[in-house]
Amino acid sequence: MPLPSCRVLILALLLSSCAFRSWGADSDVVGYVKIAHGKAFVSTRQIAVDAQPGTPLYQGSTLTTGSDGSLGVTLKDNTVMSFGPDTEVSIDDYLYKPAQDRLKLAARIVKGTLHYISGVIAKLKPEAVSINTPTGIIGVRGTRFAVKVED
């Protein structure tokens, strides 16, 4: 019975890590929605909420917009991102501890449009920022750009 017990162990580990990481605490917030139009959602750990100004974002959050939707968000390091309709973007990795030089921003756009204005992370450590698309990786040297990803 090695397989089931292994699964139980993994499940137990996952559950305990959830408990210890205390998701949803203020200190885990990586940014907030500032602007939301039409159908727009933020999903964090499989729970989707209607996006509205003040909706918190966490590492692992996915932002989606419908055909009439758009979203604008600001992250703790002053990165500004906004999204057009039919867009799906996730914040895969985010670390902003400048005093300890621990900086990381990895986001992924699956489809749609993304407009990006870099913040402190890109300024202090450009190589710590990557915006991933299905076919390529965008590296940022402190700037503003837009990307469109077709389904």
Binding site: S70, T74, S82, P85, I117
Partner: peptide, 14 residues
């Protein structure tokens, strides 16, 4: 055409 909606939803810069 491609980015109008995304650009219009950009929050003010901090």
């Amino acid at each position: 055409r491609d980015f109008g909606a995304a650009l219009a939803s950009a929050p003010r810069k901090p």
